[in-house]
C-alpha cells in the first residue's frame, strides 16, 4: 500500500498544488507548511518547466517566475529534504517528462524515493508512453499517477485498472486554470473508474471555490487546486503563506465533512 493512501483516510482529500520556487524556495517551504497546518492532505509540488503545454496562463507565469528566480531540480530536491524534517503527509512531484528524462530517469526517481516523494504526475506521459518511467517507479516505490480526461471514454477502464496512488481526473477540456463552471459529466466517469479499481480518484482543473471543491469531492475522493493558489502567490509573493493557509482551510472545511 502506497503512502499516498494516507491522504484519503481523513475524509475527502484536499490537494493543493504549489509551483516550487515561485517566487523563491523559502516562500515555497513556508506555503507548504502553512497548507499542511490548515488541513492539506497531500501536496503536489510543481517542478517548473520552461514550456508547460498543459498549463493555462496562471501556472505558466508561475513557472516562468520560478525559473527566472534560478530554481533547479537539485534545489527542489534540497527543499523536499528540508520539508521532510517535519512534513509527514504524502507529497508528489508534478512536472513534465523532459525534466525527469533529462535529469536521468533513474537518478531522478531514486532520489524521489530517498527524499520522501511518494508519486510523480507527468501530464505529457499518457498510458501509451508510461513504460518510459514505470519500471523505475516500480523499482523505487514511487507511484506514477495516471490522468483520466473528459475525452478518455473507452480508455477509462484500461487506465484505471493499472492506476497506482490516486487517479487524477481532469475535470474539463483544455489547460489548467480557474473556471466558473465545470460542465463535464464527471459522475459517469467516476462510476467507470470505480467499477475498475479501488484506487482513490481526485478531481482537478478549474476548481477555485469551496462550493466547487465540495461538489467535485462529493462525487470523488478529493479535490485538487492549482491556479487559485498560484494566484494568491502571484498577488502576495513572499508574504503569501498565511493567505494560502486561510484558503486551504476554507477548502478543506468544504470537503472534510462530505461522505
Amino acid at each position: 500500500m502506497s503512502n499516498i493512501a494516507e491522504a484519503f483516510r481523513n475524509g475527502k482529500a484536499f490537494i493543493p498544488f504549489i509551483t516550487c520556487g515561485d517566487p523563491d524556495l523559502q516562500t515555497t517551504a513556508k506555503v507548504v507548511r502553512e497548507a499542511v497546518r490548515n488541513g492539506a492532505d497531500l501536496i503536489e509540488l510543481g517542478i517548473p518547466f520552461s514550456d508547460p503545454t498543459a498549463e493555462g496562463p496562471v501556472i505558466q507565469e508561475a513557472n516562468l517566475r520560478a525559473l527566472q528566480g534560478g530554481v533547479t531540480t537539485d534545489k527542489i530536491f534540497d527543499l523536499v529534504r528540508e520539508l521532510r524534517t517535519d512534513v509527514t503527509i504524502p507529497m508528489v512531484f508534478m512536472t513534465y517528462a523532459n525534466v525527469v528524462f533529462s535529469y536521468g530517469a533513474e537518478i531522478f526517481i531514486s532520489t524521489c524515493r530517498e527524499i520522501g516523494i511518494d508519486g510523480l504526475i507527468l501530464p505529457d506521459l499518457p498510458f501509451e508512453e508510461k513504460e518510459e518511467f514505470l519500471p523505475l517507479c516500480e523499482e523505487y516505490g514511487v507511484d506514477l499517477i495516471s490522468l483520466i480526461a473528459p475525452t478518455s471514454e473507452n480508455r477509462i477502464a484500461m487506465i484505471a485498472k493499472e492506476a497506482k496512488g490516486f487517479i487524477y481526473l481532469v475535470s474539463s477540456l483544455g489547460v489548467t486554470g480557474v473556471r466558473s463552471e465545470i460542465k463535464t459529466d464527471l459522475q459517469s466517469i467516476v462510476n467507470v473508474i470505480r467499477a475498475n479499481t479501488d484506487t482513490p480518484v481526485a478531481i482537478g482543473f478549474g476548481i477555485s471555490k469551496p462550493e466547487q471543491a465540495a461538489k467535485m469531492a462529493g462525487i470523488s475522493d478529493g479535490a485538487i487546486v492549482g491556479s487559485a493558489i498560484i494566484k494568491i502567490l502571484a498577488e502576495h509573493g513572499r508574504d503569501a503563506a498565511p493567505y494560502v493557509g486561510e484558503y486551504v482551510k476554507s477548502m478543506k472545511d468544504a470537503v472534510a465533512g462530505l461522505k
Binding site: T53, D124, A149, R155
Partner: peptide
C-alpha cells in the same frame, strides 16, 4: 512516440 496529455489521446 506520443508524449501528450491524456485529453488528446483519443
Amino acid at each position: 512516440g506520443q508524449y501528450i496529455p491524456e485529453t488528446l489521446m483519443n
